[in-house]
């Protein structure tokens, strides 16, 4: 409670316009954050089978896609903003255990069944950048 008189000492130094400028500055920060930091939000799920494009699906409605491969059928599950390989006939289940993909540029590969699921979107993330 002792800090309030101290804060009150500083407040009269602010003039009405200063509050406006401060508010505008904070809004500008919020705007910049929203504009620049939403890269990585995926827009589409791209499914490939046997090296060929099998299909592209928007990530706004839930759906299940059955993709045939040499070992059998893999099931890709799509939900708003994310996608995963739900079922795969491969022996080690790596792509299934990867779970939900949520970032643009991330990939789940079911090598035995020759199927891959990747998320594409604006400003996909890089593994690394060198200058």
């Amino acid at each position: 409670m002792k800090q309030f008189p101290r804060l009150a000492e500083w407040l009269p130094l602010l003039r009405p316009g200063d509050y406006l400028v401060l508010l505008a500055g904070v809004l500008l920060c919020a705007f910049a954050t929203m504009m620049l930091w939403r890269g990585g939000v995926p827009e589409k799920a791209v499914i490939r089978a046997g090296g060929e494009l099998f299909g592209e699906y928007p990530l706004n409605a839930p759906r299940q896609v059955e993709v045939p491969g040499p070992l059998g059928i893999s099931v890709i599950e799509i939900e708003p903003g994310r996608a995963r390989v739900a079922v795969d006939p491969g022996p080690r289940q790596y792509c299934v255990r990867q779970g939900w993909l949520t970032q643009a540029g991330s990939v789940a590969i079911c090598a035995p069944n020759q199927i891959s699921l990747s998320l594409s979107g604006r400003g996909g993330q890089y593994d690394s950048l060198n200058y």
Partner: peptide, 18 residues
């Protein structure tokens, strides 16, 4: 040159920082 009654050193400081 902004009106002094409304904009004090804090405004100038924030403008300058930006």
């Amino acid at each position: 040159h902004l009106p002094k009654r409304w904009f004090g050193p804090v405004s100038l400081s924030i403008f300058a920082a930006f």
